[in-house]
Computed example of a mutant assay.
Amino acid sequence: MMPLGPKYTPTEWKIYQFILSNKDKVVTFSLRQLALKLDVSPASVVRTIKKMGYEHYSDLNKQLKHELNIPIVDDDITFQANFYFHQPIINSYTRKFEAFKRLTNNITDFIFYGIGTSNDLASYGARQFVNNGRSAFVVSDPFYPIDRIQNAYHNKAVIVLSVSGETTPTIEQVMNFRTHGAKVISITNNSDNTIANLSDLNFSYFLESKIVGRKLNLTSQIPVVYILERLSRSLQD
Rank of each mutant, 00 (worst) to 15 (best):
N22V: 04
K25E: 15
V26L: 03
T28C: 12
T28S: 13
S30E: 10
R32Y: 05
R32G: 00
Q33E: 13
L34H: 06
A35S: 15
D39A: 14
P42H: 12
V45C: 11
V46L: 12
R47C: 02
I49L: 08
K50V: 07
K50N: 08
K50D: 07
K51I: 14
G53L: 08
Y54F: 15
E55C: 07
E55H: 10
H56Q: 14
Y57F: 15
D59R: 08
D59N: 12
L60E: 09
L60W: 06
N61T: 13
N61P: 02
K62V: 08
K62S: 10
K62I: 07
K62G: 04
Q63F: 00
L64Q: 09
P71W: 11
V73H: 01
V73L: 15
D74R: 12
T78Y: 11
F79G: 00
Q80I: 04
A81C: 09
F83R: 04
Y84N: 12
Q87N: 05
Q87S: 09
P88W: 12
I89D: 06
S92V: 03
S92N: 09
T94V: 06
R95Q: 14
K96P: 00
K96A: 00
F97N: 02
E98H: 10
A99T: 05
A99G: 02
K101F: 03
R102K: 14
T104D: 03
N105F: 12
T108G: 03
T108K: 05
Y113F: 15
G114K: 01
I115A: 11
G116K: 09
T117P: 00
S118Q: 06
N119V: 02
N119E: 07
D120L: 05
D120M: 07
A122N: 08
Y124W: 09
Y124T: 13
G125C: 01
A126I: 02
Q128S: 13
V130D: 00
V130Q: 03
N131R: 12
N132C: 03
R134I: 11
R134Y: 15
S135K: 12
A136N: 04
F137D: 08
V138I: 06
S140G: 10
P142F: 03
F143L: 12
Y144W: 05
Y144R: 00
Y144I: 01
P145G: 10
P145W: 06
R148L: 11
Q150N: 10
Y153P: 03
K156R: 15
S162Q: 05
V163T: 11
S164A: 07
G165K: 01
E166D: 10
